[in-house]
Amino acid sequence: MSTAPASVLTAAGRAGSRRSALMTAILVFTTIGCLDAAYLTYVHYQGFGALVCLGAHNGHSSCETVQSSVWAEIDGVPVALLGLIGYLGLFSSYLVTERINGELGRGLGFCIALIGFGFSGYLTYRELFSIHAICEWCVGSAVCMTVLAVLTGIRFLRGEPPALDQPAA
């Protein structure tokens, strides 16, 4: 029965700990983004009166202006709902990583985060240059997606943590 040198195990332990910190950060940003998108989806269906916003635009809150714009929907489906589905998809990809296939799950998570990042970037461009109003909640989600695209990218490129099936001697 072979044993790994203590130095290798320590390095592997550090790598595992970094990965654990990475995964914790990913889960935190996914949760924040998910709550943000859930709130915007709720507001979309329940009424903009429930929308708390700092800015103002043409006598209305700037969030109301953004949420009422033609860019707030794709073919009748609110983009907030699409964002919520995206965050739930990210959670599902973490489950796939843990329970089914690590590489597939990490790739799926990276792909969803990249799509979210790309579309959030487009919507932020529209807020700045077409709607001329900023919705803090949308910016919050865009920041979460940007961070998640970076973190899930690192996680995907790093791959599996090294197997530590042997205890230190």
Binding site: L82, G107, L114, I115
Partner: peptide, 24 residues
């Protein structure tokens, strides 16, 4: 790396379709 390039390309296609579908 190859897979990440493919994933990025796939994400870019999905975003492009979403932008086209967006009524803006």
């Amino acid at each position: 790396l190859q897979v990440s390039v493919a994933v990025t390309a796939l994400a870019a296609i999905v975003v492009a379709v979403a932008i086209v579908l967006s009524s803006g």
